[in-house]
Deep mutational scan, measured.
Amino acid sequence: EVTIKANLIFANGSTQTAEFKGTFEKATSEAYAYADTLKKDNGEYTVDVADKGYTLNAKFAG
């Protein structure tokens, strides 16, 4: 089991951190699915991958 950390950075400057656990593939998929649920209210996002894929920095356009 691994933990994927998602740093969510919103256009207004606020941030949120979420963690997803499971296999690498499952946890990564859940992190992206969570970011997708936030698109409606926060706009499209881009992701910078860090820490060999164990940290995802998602920046929302607003």
Rank of each mutant, 00 (worst) to 15 (best):
A50I: 11
E1K: 09
T37K: 13
E19F: 15
T55M: 06
E44C: 13
K5S: 07
G53E: 05
T28P: 00
G62Y: 06
V47T: 07
K26L: 10
K59M: 12
T28S: 08
T46Q: 09
K52P: 05
K59C: 11
T55V: 10
L56T: 03
G13E: 04
A6V: 15
A31G: 03
F10V: 00
F24K: 08
L8I: 14
G53P: 00
F20I: 02
G53Q: 03
E19P: 00
A11Q: 09
G43Q: 01
A27R: 00
K5Q: 08
V47R: 01
T28M: 13
G13V: 03
V47A: 06
V47Y: 05
K26Y: 11
E1P: 10
N12Y: 05
F20S: 02
A35E: 03
F24P: 05
Y54E: 06
G13D: 04
E1A: 10
N7M: 09
T28E: 05
D36R: 00
F60I: 03
G22W: 00
I4G: 00
T55F: 05
A33F: 08
T3R: 07
F60L: 02
D36C: 07
E1R: 10
K40A: 14
V49T: 10
E19Q: 09
A58D: 04
G22P: 02
Y34H: 07
K52S: 14
L8A: 05
A11D: 06
G13T: 06
E25A: 11
F20Q: 02
Y45P: 03
A33D: 08
N7E: 05
E44A: 10
K5P: 00
N42K: 10
A58N: 03
F20A: 02
Q16N: 08
A6K: 01
A18H: 14
A50H: 10
N7D: 02
K59R: 14
D36F: 00
A50Q: 14
Q16D: 09
T17W: 09
G43T: 01
A61K: 12
E44S: 11
K21E: 06
N7I: 14
F20L: 02
L38A: 09
K40R: 12
L56E: 04
A35Y: 15
I9S: 08
Y32E: 03
D41Q: 12
N57E: 07
D36L: 01
K52Y: 14
L8V: 09
F10N: 02
E30D: 15
I9T: 11
G62C: 08
A6F: 14
A33C: 09
D48I: 14
D48A: 10
G62Q: 08
A11C: 14
E1N: 11
V47W: 09
N57S: 07
F60Q: 04
Y34T: 02
F24M: 10
F24W: 11
T17G: 06
D51K: 01
A11G: 09
G13R: 04
V2M: 04
T28I: 13
L8K: 00
N57R: 02
K52W: 13
K21W: 10
A61Q: 14
F10W: 05
T17K: 10
F24L: 10
A50R: 12
E44N: 12
N57P: 00
A33E: 10
G13L: 05
T17V: 13
G22H: 01
E1C: 14
T46F: 10
D48P: 00
A50L: 14
F24Q: 05
A18C: 15
T28K: 07
G53C: 05
K59W: 14
A31M: 08
V49Q: 06
G53I: 02
A6I: 15
K5N: 06
L38G: 03
A18P: 03
A6G: 03
A33T: 08
T46E: 10
G43S: 01
K39P: 01
I4V: 10
V2Y: 05
A31E: 03
A27I: 03
D36N: 08
D51S: 00
K52H: 15
V49R: 06
A18G: 05
Q16L: 15
Q16S: 12
A33S: 09
G22C: 04
V2S: 05
Y45E: 01
T55R: 02
T46H: 10
V47H: 03
Y54L: 14
Q16C: 15
T55W: 05
D51H: 02
D41L: 13
T3L: 09
Y34K: 03
I9E: 08
N7G: 01
T23C: 07
L8N: 02
A11N: 08
K39T: 11
K59T: 14
K39V: 15
E19S: 10
L38M: 13
I9A: 07
T55Q: 07
K26H: 11
T23A: 07
Y54F: 14
K52C: 15
Q16V: 14
L56M: 07
T46I: 11
D36G: 03
E44W: 09
N12D: 15
V2Q: 05
E30T: 06
S14A: 13
A50G: 11
K39C: 08
A18W: 12
E1W: 14
E30A: 14
A27E: 00
I4M: 02
Y34R: 04
A58S: 04
N42S: 08
Y54W: 07
A18D: 04
A58E: 04
E44D: 13
I4A: 00
L56N: 04
G22Y: 00
T15V: 15
D48H: 12
L8Q: 00
